[in-house]
Design a protein around this nucleic acid. Sequence first.
DNA 1: CGCGCAAAATTGCGATCACAATGCACGAAC
DNA 2: GTTCGTGCATTGTGATCGCAATTTTGCGCG
Lengths: 245, 245
Amino acid sequence: MKEVRARRPLADSTAVHDRVYDAIRQALITGKIAPGVGVSLRSLAAELGVSPMPVRDAVRRLVAERALAINPANKRLSVPSLSAERLEQLELARQWIEPELAARAAPRADEALVRRLKAIDLDLEEALRVGDVDRYMVANHAFHFAIYERAGAEVLLAMAGGLWLQIGPFMRVVFGRVGTGSLPADRHAEAMDALKARDAEGVRRAIAADLSEGMDKMRAAVEAGAGLTAAPTGQTVITVSGGKV
Amino acid sequence: MKEVRARRPLADSTAVHDRVYDAIRQALITGKIAPGVGVSLRSLAAELGVSPMPVRDAVRRLVAERALAINPANKRLSVPSLSAERLEQLELARQWIEPELAARAAPRADEALVRRLKAIDLDLEEALRVGDVDRYMVANHAFHFAIYERAGAEVLLAMAGGLWLQIGPFMRVVFGRVGTGSLPADRHAEAMDALKARDAEGVRRAIAADLSEGMDKMRAAVEAGAGLTAAPTGQTVITVSGGKV
DNA sequence: CGCGCAAAATTGCGATCACAATGCACGAAC
DNA sequence: GTTCGTGCATTGTGATCGCAATTTTGCGCG
């Protein structure tokens, strides 16, 4: 297949490897890529319609961010599995950094931010009602990071992004289990109220509670045997609630 | 120079891009690369005696870890400068994560660890006496991470490593200024004593104090105007473990 | 029917080439 | 002497090729 591809000007805002990165990242955050399955550079490249090179670059970044793992022997990459220890550390880190970001965002909050959050939250609740997992994941991520970005703390924000990237694939598992049951939207409402009042500690508490509830569910799911163990070799399709993801 | 290079078996423990990564990382941590200076893939490749390709991979990882910055317009990369805000966030993150790692290491400490720490600390003090900045930086890094690794917390350890990578280039600036003056070895002694006693909170306090003192100096240096221009202490010579200049 | 070994396919890594874009420098114009 | 424009060098990016190693397949033998 020696197809001649139209050459893209390099100075446009997004290089190919950046778009590939965003595509894989989004797939990870929203849990579209099941943990444990092995992927190859060439297969990803073929799927995305690019050469293996930009995929290599994107994968390097994701591996550096611990969003993808690479088997040292195989050199084959997969989504890392979530052990109990890993979950515990990720929860600890999230519980420290995300309320901190939220608290820092409080004094910088304005009407526009609250309006945007409200819109996102409405979309989130709608997704919950209709059971659209993808939409829920995207909205939840958007809600949190709309707040965090307001903190204006680049380093902390990047750390938080890395943490979400690591737990993203598993949040979907949890949501798939919990379904449209208990919704953390109340915590979101608390956060928005506190933001409107510039109440830093209130925002911190609301986000901490939101995280705590979500991570509780996730811990329960992991302990309940959704323990997604990536087999050392071969492809392991994680099954949750009886269905293939 | 179209020299035919001997091909290295791929399955040996370290790939070329990994060795390049380690080389640049070590150069960053020990502050061998001054902040603000721009580097290019080809120049790095020529310096290391490899093709630009593995350098690209290594640089991707380092950019993902925020150890290198890439100008969005230029697409040119450099060591990111340390602004006051960045320093504040890095300090906050370090003050949270590193004492936590140290505390977790305490119950797992044994005689061998303390002996190793003692050896490192002796080397560190020796480096301080003779004013060998490189040696001091290496020893200090080794001391802290010998403890942190004992915590057995992979996620937190990786985060701490990323933080050191980001402030590494500036620690050298600071200690190049402070010279062999006030030495934080006492905190190291406190940490070792607490480790020997399995006193988690004691280790936590010692590491927190050690960090606090170091970051105080760094903040003073940054405020004094060392933000962008580092002390040009020698050329940036990076050597990969294989030898080739 | 099962097991083991060899051949073919797949995969990651590194090198080299091509190309667009930017940076840099030398020289001309006023 | 200063400033602006044009040509050359350098840089990052992506594609393609070659290679070694691993995985998978296929087939023959027990």
